[in-house]
Design a protein around this nucleic acid. Structure first.
Lengths: 187, 187
DNA sequence: TCTAGTTTTTGACATATATCAAAGGAAGTT
DNA sequence: AACTTCCTTTGATATATGTCAAAAACTAGA
């Protein structure tokens, strides 16, 4: 079974027929590490589901590279605001490790949603689920210390430390690399 | 024209018939200031659209009142994670000023989405829009100074300062009331 | 195995923001 | 007008985290 289908099954129900239509609409591809998937200031035409590997979205603020999102297996990555709102992306998307990704093209995805009531509903439910994830992430950042945020992260995704450079994790958590390094040794 | 219909029109298109069905599904009610709309640890059965007044969601962390969301006119407020994911709410919802709100009940809203393809789509588009708002809010908190966050806020919603107590605004911005007070005098 | 490049750690110091405590101001009620 | 209560400001000090610079530890090619 494709892991992407498993993931969708957890959110909404799809008939066999719709699962097949979904798989026909998306493409499974391999990407080397550090491949740019989305440039800044362009409207995003694709979002990606990570089957294997890791990827991130990031931007530059005062010359510094700030990671907004890190996706490991079975998570989506992409410039979501740009993709859904059809506005230029303020973020860059790139692979971190070597990846197997499922590419979702905007036009194909919208066509799929439009073709079919059940797909449309799954899309809505998935968006609601994403809202709840973002709300939780915001809560973590909102009034927790750097150390607490780090501990929340390693409890959920302990392997992230081995797989993703420290600087990316630090800015993802909203702190500098030096601070994260210090926190890490004292834990 | 109802402001709520105007707002929906900006996101998705609704037929006259669907606009009427929507208005039949929701209730317009007045609430006094500081009315609790949602208790903590209960699954949320309603979200609210603010026609007039202001409302917020908040929670307690180490005894301190932390505001997560502040809604003025033409915005939604509610415990969204709880409402959509059907899990106990970690937040409390209350009016700040005296309000006119449109109540959206979970069962009625789902029934409306299910009854009708166009409504379902509007629901999906609205959720996508909410994702993009949350992403922007996260970006503001992520690597901006307290002062920058304050300035971003007053540029967008200058009237919030007159209408909402400083302590609520401070925790909404992720800072203490004392710090916000100092920032405010030096601007 | 050596070298060059990248990533992580460490050190000294600077700064933003928090904390605790108290004083001032508003606003509403009797 | 005086009294409460709530909200905001101010002051003194503490603390977490950032900044800049350099050293150390990895990594991967040649």
């Amino acid at each position: 079974m494709q892991s992407i289908i498993e993931t969708f099954r957890q959110i909404g129900e799809l008939s066999k027929k719709n699962e097949e239509a979904l798989l026909r609409a998306i493409k499974r591809r391999e990407y080397p590490p550090r491949t740019i998937l989305q440039k800044q200031d362009k409207i995003s035409d694709k979002i990606y589901f990570v089957e294997k590997g890791s990827a991130r979205t990031y931007y530059y603020k005062e010359g510094k590279d700030i990671t907004y999102w890190i996706a490991l297996e079975n998570d989506f990555v992409g410039s979501m605001s740009s993709f859904f709102m059809r506005e230029p992306s303020n973020k860059i998307v790139e692979t971190i490790e070597s990846c197997i990704l499922w590419d979702f093209e905007y036009e194909k995805l919208e066509a799929l949603f439009s073709s079919n009531r059940e797909m449309e509903k799954t899309g809505r439910l998935y968006a609601n689920y994403a809202i709840s994830l973002l709300e939780k992430r915001f809560d973590h950042l909102h009034f927790n210390s750097a150390k607490d945020r780090y501990e929340i992260l390693i409890n959920r995704q302990p392997e992230i430390i081995q797989r993703v450079p420290l600087g990316m994790i630090a800015s993802y958590l909203g702190i500098t690399q030096e601070t994260l390094s210090r926190i890490r040794t004292q834990v």
